[in-house]
Amino acid sequence: MSILRQRVLPGFGLSLGYALTYLSLIVLLPLAALAWKAVGMGASGWLQLLSAPRTLAALRLSLGGAVLAASINAVIGLLVGWVLVRYRFPGRRVFDALVDLPFALPTAVAGIALTTLYAPQGWLGRWLEPLGIQVAYTPLGVLVAMVFVGFPFVVRTLQPVLASLERDVEEAAESLGARRWQTFFRVILPLLAPTLLTGFALALARAVGEYGSVIFIAGNIPGRSEIAPLLIVQKLEQFDYAGAAALGAAMLLLSFVLLVLVALLQRWSQRWAESSR
């Protein structure tokens, strides 16, 4: 006999249908337009675009800067996360809340604020200038902005894991005679590695495409401190839609490849962390 199979909880068709339609219209269709436009440019157009020194320099700055910024964030994020989770000191909660500032502060605001600070006459630039360090309007400025926007990711991914890390493990290591730094590098760090990589990947993804906070401080000197997203904007302003689409597609592909690499690394470190448990 056939049974009229019903779902107990209602709304499957409605909710899934709505979500899919919405995603198709807002995300899939426009991305398809990008792919279509990019492919339409043909192989020779791609080759010409991607071999242009200016394009290459911009991509190198966006990707290289993002990797470097995410690495810096991994180290500083670990320090800040550790201090916020492990130690008690006055004002801890305020500082903890402040970690999210780069999420909340509009990028344009962050951009002009950082530029003002690091400009040669700025509060920080004034002190760095005599040391021969110029931040604003150089690739170093791009890096500073990228570190700023990616900062919360590592801290926020690490915090819950740090909090749930069993103290026993450390105490066991110490009871076995390990010194503090040995405990840290041999016990704690391997346990944190997968999470650290997650935070790294998030910070990386954010920094690769970052625009608002970077363009003010970068100075945008072609071939030197010009990021890839800005190049896209400029192509759009010159009505080179195909070029903009191709560059956009190239960026998406590159960051996708980068993230897949990080995911593989993460899987590997996770397996290692689990097998060593």
Binding site: G209, Y211, P229, I232, M251, L252
Partner: peptide, 13 residues
């Protein structure tokens, strides 16, 4: 994980 610029670009396209 999409650059904001690309998010705008796709609608222009």
């Amino acid at each position: 994980s999409v650059s904001p610029v690309i998010s705008g670009l796709i609608y222009v396209l």
